[in-house]
Design a protein around this nucleic acid. Structure first.
Lengths: 249, 249
DNA sequence: GCCAATTTGTGACGGACTGTAACAAGGCGT
DNA sequence: ACGCCTTGTTACAGTCCGTCACAAATTGGC
């Protein structure tokens, strides 16, 4: 499973070079494999299955989740076109991958995938970059789950998926939300009721408005950002903080 | 007291492969670098700093954390001897790394680190494996934060660090807890009071007993595992589940 | 197009965890 | 040994979110 966040821009960049003459890309690797389709609600693989394939999402959205002994479900991520699923060194999948919408994927034998990666000095950094992005996304999610309020979680989520499919990394005004409230709840560590209540609260405050059941329109983008509890990071390289010297020499 | 001594012994084990004749290891890469020491409470680097070094923990424990705009802190992980810190492709560190105890680290220039990794077909899979392990840990942590109760979180944490320094992956009876209650709370998404209350509850139930302020003795290991809410995974390869066929061909 | 099943929305209520605050226990330096 | 300061514990009131119950809106199947 890969990426989440800031990779949208990268995906676009990577995807626009699918033809064979160019320097190799991860997408290029998969492009010769046949496309497989899964209906919404069906699993591509299950947690604990022998992990002998890596998948590339071509179309649609999947959920990646784990189940606790007593049935509690935690969705650790949603996968979009361009993402890779099942990249790991374990011999068994660590999570279940299930289609949220009807999806198309390409499959690659793990062994061959590893060989190709190992052989190509061009592919390696690409894969490495993805793992790093995925790690960064996981950390953001930990922050969300550990310390954010229900409202902040929902707002963060809406921002996340609004940036997800946008090539510029800009938040789109109309946001597709293919997943159910239960999916959102299990991703955000909340209940459906809470998610539902917050969505209506955001609507009544004019921050968003519903557009059918599986899309919303963002009416107050800045407000949404504020409510998400993120510092809209100036990130100007000139040190904003006066850090203490950390060189002990 | 086993306490400090047991840690030292394990550390020694981890470090004992620095000689050059062997096939290259990540440890070996760092072994030529001078050791740097940091006092407890000091930062090795800060979130947002220019990310130009990778570090190997030689001795002690560090916390990795992010801060939300209004000061809320989330510790995303604790780093132990043998762990690498700062491995990413971003040009800035995504988190702050701070010494919990007095620590020793080795430093490696990021650029050179990348080159070495890229050059060595032996090192690459090692690094890759680490990233995958880190990712798996992050997912477990998401499960913990999203769905586990306060008691389950504390028990999971105690189990985690008890396994951490043990070469067999077996949980040690005497568990060092170098971090403060606040660290635990910020790692588990709880408050210090809750952590404190749960620890005393576990003590009064005879599951653990305190051994000084920074160590506990696990008295009922199985009970602790149960309370952690984990399925003690039989993981026998014979399919326990009847999975549906996932090959659409 | 119709009806059952699923998903979503809304309210009342309770409970787990929080936050404040007061106190106890170590740690550390003089 | 004595104080001071940090860290940890305990109690109690408050709150956010979960639980339960039911209604409304969609979806999907035929």
């Amino acid at each position: 499973m890969l990426s989440q966040d800031s990779i949208a821009a990268v995906n676009h960049f990577v995807r626009q070079v699918p033809c064979e003459a160019e320097r190799p890309t991860l997408q290029g690797l998969f492009s010769r494999q046949p496309i497989e389709k899964f209906e919404a609600g069906t699993a591509v693989f299950w947690e604990g299955d022998e992990a002998d394939h890596v998948f590339e999402v071509v179309e649609g959205v999947l959920r990646i989740y784990k189940i606790l002994g007593d049935g509690r479900r935690v969705i650790t991520g949603f996968m979009y076109p361009g993402d890779l699923i099942g990249v790991s060194l374990k011999d068994r999948y660590l999570y279940t991958a299930e289609a949220v919408t009807r999806i198309q994927v390409r499959r690659f034998a793990r062994q061959r995938f590893q060989e190709e990666i190992n052989r190509s000095p061009e592919l390696r950094p690409q894969l490495f970059a993805r793992l790093c992005d995925e790690m960064a996304a996981a950390q953001d999610q930990m922050v969300l789950l550990a310390r954010k309020s229900a409202e902040e979680r929902v707002c963060s989520f809406l921002l996340l998926i609004s940036r997800r499919l946008d090539r510029d990394g800009q938040a789109l005004r109309v946001v597709e939300v293919p997943m159910t409230r239960l999916d959102m709840a299990d991703y955000l560590g909340l209940t459906i009721e809470t998610v539902s209540r917050i969505m209506t609260r955001l609507t009544s405050r004019g921050v968003i408005s519903p557009s059918g059941r599986h899309a919303i329109i963002v009416r107050k983008s800045d407000k949404l950002t504020t409510l998400a509890g993120e510092v809209e990071a100036d990130h100007n390289p000139s040190a904003a903080y006066t850090h203490q010297a950390v060189w002990p020499n």
